[in-house]
C-alpha cells in the first residue's frame, strides 16, 4: 500500500488520514516574520529576498477567530454548503481553512476562541489509485476554550 499524497504538497506534507497536520510556512531570517502560505519572492514585512526566507514548519494548532457556512459558490468545487474558518495559528499567522466534514453537511458553526487542530482528511485518489489527503481544521476537543 503506497503512502498517501498531499493534495497541496507545497502547503503541507502528507500523512495517514485522520492524523494531525503541520503546515509549511516561512520565517524571515532578517526580521523574524513568520508567514503562511509560503513564498520566496520576498518578505512582506521587511523586504528581505529569497535567501533570507527559510522553511518553517508550523504546528496545526490554533484558535478560532470566525467561522461561516458558505451557501452560494459559483465555482466548481467544493459543493455547497461548506464551512470556512479564520484561525490564528499558535505559531503566528492567521489563515483561512475549510473545516472537516463541511463539504457534506451544513456544519454547525463554532464559537470564536475554540481551540482548533489541523487534520488530514481523505480526498479521493489520483489516477494511479494512490490516496490523496487534504488539510482541514476541526475543534481540538469538545468545548475546549482558549484561556490564553
Amino acid at each position: 500500500m503506497p503512502q498517501p499524497i498531499s493534495a497541496q504538497p507545497t502547503l503541507y506534507p502528507a500523512g495517514p488520514p485522520g492524523s494531525a497536520a503541520r503546515l509549511r510556512g516561512r520565517r524571515c531570517a532578517a526580521c523574524g516574520y513568520v508567514f503562511f502560505p509560503p513564498q520566496d519572492f520576498g518578505c512582506e514585512r521587511c523586504g528581505a529576498a529569497a535567501d533570507q526566507l527559510v522553511p518553517a514548519e508550523l504546528k496545526g494548532t490554533g484558535t478560532l477567530l470566525a467561522c461561516v457556512t458558505v451557501y452560494f459558490h459559483p465555482l466548481q468545487e467544493p459543493t455547497t454548503p461548506f464551512t470556512v474558518a479564520s484561525i490564528l495559528l499558535d505559531d503566528g499567522p492567521a489563515i483561512r481553512s475549510l473545516l472537516v466534514g463541511a463539504g457534506e453537511t451544513e456544519a454547525q458553526c463554532l464559537e470564536p476562541g475554540l481551540r482548533m487542530q489541523a487534520v488530514l482528511t481523505p480526498a479521493g485518489t489520483d489516477s494511479e489509485g494512490t490516496e490523496i489527503v487534504e488539510l482541514r481544521f476541526a475543534p481540538a476537543g469538545p468545548g475546549t476554550r482558549d484561556v490564553g
Binding site: 497541496q8 502560505p37 513564498q39 458558505v70 459558490h73 479564520s86 483561512r96 475549510l98 470564536p112 488539510l135
Partner: peptide, 26 residues
Amino acid sequence: TGIRDLTASRLLPVAHFALLADEYMH
C-alpha cells in the same frame, strides 16, 4: 502570483466579509 493558499479558489469576497461579520457579531 503563483502563491497557492489553502482555500485557493474557494473564498469569494462574500465569504471573506461573512467571516468578518461573524467575528464582529461575537
